[in-house]
Design a protein around this nucleic acid. Structure first.
Lengths: 353, 353
DNA sequence: ATCAAGCGATAAATCGATTTTTCGCTGTTG
DNA sequence: CAACAGCGAAAAATCGATTTATCGCTTGAT
């Protein structure tokens, strides 16, 4: 029986108390840094902790405390770079403040989103960072409101009357994209979007259109919106091109739309930027290594995460005041997928093979 | 004071007991489906639960139980599709069995990996799914062994004497890639890998080389390994090409290496598959929409996740026996980035612009 | 010398469940 | 009719911490 002890029951605070010859209350105080303990006892406690390898059980600890040191995070998916690094950041920030982050994926389902929220409420999390599937008016936000949970809404949101919201300033970014395209001579631009995120998509669209028309009133902006799934978008796009529509540039308002656009270009044998230009909202690592590199709007993930946690902890600590609605600005990276119309006559593609 | 009650203290099991006119113990039994309760009381309890909107506090519940219904998952990063969907799957499977999944990112650091594990041990998780940064012999696995934690090791592992391991059968997949390349006439192939994952990388490399030489003994297989970071790999690759080396195909053993290869091809103006062929280990959504589409080895994420959870829960439920080491087979998708050497003479590139 | 205040520490209550023990009652059995 | 199971439910212990209440002792003021 040499190294059996490691597998045995972990020492509790009472074991430490016994070993140190003090009470459990004293141990608790020492470990929390309360100053009314005699230095001698402090030392004895630390020694006992060291000796036994004691570590606080956060579960038991949180049970008694007023606030549980757990933060929940809910995102529509884990598979994308955007939400992946969002979770990474949030985890880092929560940890920094001594909180555990519990992340969950709503898998793009509002029903599931609400269920997860209910489960987090069961866990009595101190706060939630919610990136809603659709927008700030979904059942999940309603649930949070109803039960007085504290939280912050991010990404697919604009403003809310109950929670702080935070997202990329996709409006300004879209206007900048419009400027870049119009200045390069594009006068017929197709915009791809997802309809279910009504408000945010409308904001991007309106900013884009406004700036485009302001710079060149004769610009034609076509729009294809798919309600929630991406496949309808694909077929709509296919039909659009089949009808003979020939925009000189495409601006996709979301990552998966960019992929759909690329794959439709493939089908028709079109190459960027000679046959058509492409800009996508949301950047990805691979976009800079393909040929051509894909122009994209880079979202300020880090800033959103930092600011979201900052706001959340202020509310957790009881700060009042009306909810704020912040936008963090994006960076627009014009890469090779964008050119000037006419440089490659937009005829039938597929000559290159 | 109309809808104030929602924000108030949540009802506890005692509130339910009072409301139903029974004891807390009875409520607990009813909620767990113990059959020794009179039907009448069962009904009263359910009514009270309904009336008060009671839900069990999992924290308090787990504190008393023998096993806490929490599973930990540790992956090197959240940003990639592979680990993103791995977490999605694991979450789904844990949920299915009534467990909560707590996911954490080691951010490619072994030190952090161990810290996270210690924290999970503090939480007394029932089990851990660990995707180690390096391999099965790191400090994290040592920690798990030392403290008798139950867990499963996945992805960058081959076999272990203490834990079940599970990974993609990258050896067979690599052999298949070798076959595909050699059969297309490639006789000079460069392999890119990460050295720190010693055993798994060696396995892939050896299978590849073996099959290549078996099919065509005159095949030349060059190897560039970078220890742990990706930037050294980039410069090593640059030097390699600068020296005048002209392999007709590149096989990257990991996703980021594929990106590095693509970006170096860009720099030199080389196009796949005319100037050089490329196959990457690990598939990604974008690889099928780019032009050319990138050939890749698809890992069986879903199967790995399912099998990992299956094994883990068997161990949690006390099943003994020696640790198993399973490999799940991959699919190799040959896409346009692979061609035959000579179809585009491998001279200085950049003619296309 | 008496009482109040202050200090440091312990005992006890608490968090919200589960699990074990105890208890009262009914129906059998010797 | 006393003793004994068996049943269903309540009471109490438990999990492992934190927090509150209490206590003994010293010090200072009256």
């Amino acid at each position: 029986m040499v190294h059996r002890e490691a597998h045995a029951r972990r020492p509790s605070i009472h074991d430490v108390a016994n070993s140190a010859g003090v009470s459990a209350a004293t141990v608790s105080k020492v470990l929390q840094g309360v100053s009314t303990v005699k230095p001698e006892n402090v030392q004895r406690v630390f020694d006992a902790v060291e000796l036994l390898g004691y570590r606080i059980d956060p579960l038991a600890s949180d049970l008694r405390r007023a606030k549980r040191r757990i933060i929940g995070a809910i995102v529509p998916e884990f598979e994308s770079e955007f939400f992946g690094s969002m979770i990474t950041q949030l985890e880092r920030l929560a940890e920094q403040r001594g909180y555990a982050l519990v992340a969950a994926s709503s898998r793009e389902s509002e029903a599931r989103e609400k269920e997860i929220l209910a489960r987090m409420h069961d866990w009595r999390v101190s706060g939630v960072v919610l990136a809603p599937v659709r927008n700030e008016h979904g059942p999940a936000a309603g649930f949070m409101k109803k039960y007085g949970m504290t939280g912050v809404l991010i990404d697919r949101v604009l403003a809310d009357d109950a929670f702080d919201t935070l997202s990329a300033d996709s409006g300004s970014a879209s206007a900048e994209v419009a400027r870049e395209l119009v200045e390069r001579g594009h006068r017929h631009i197709l915009v791809l979007g997802l309809g279910e995120q009504a408000a945010t998509v409308r904001a991007r669209l309106e900013s884009f259109r406004e700036r485009a028309l302001q710079l060149a009133p004769d610009t034609r902006v076509d729009v294809i919106l798919s309600e929630s799934d991406v496949e309808p978008l694909r077929s709509a796009l296919r039909d659009y091109f089949a009808k003979g529509e020939r925009p000189t540039a495409v601006y996709s308002l979301f990552l998966r739309g960019t992929l759909v656009a690329l794959s439709e270009f493939r089908r028709r044998g079109w190459h960027c930027p000679n046959d058509i230009s492409l800009v996508g909202f949301d950047d990805a690592e691979w976009m800079q290594v393909t040929w051509p590199a894909i122009a994209a709007v880079v979202q300020p993930v880090r800033q959103i995460a930092i600011e979201a946690m900052e706001l959340l902890f202020r509310r957790i600590e009881g700060e009042g005041g009306p909810p704020t609605a912040r936008l963090e600005s994006c960076k627009v990276l014009m890469r090779e997928s964008v050119g000037s119309p006419g440089s490659g006559p937009h005829s039938g593609g597929g000559k290159r093979r």
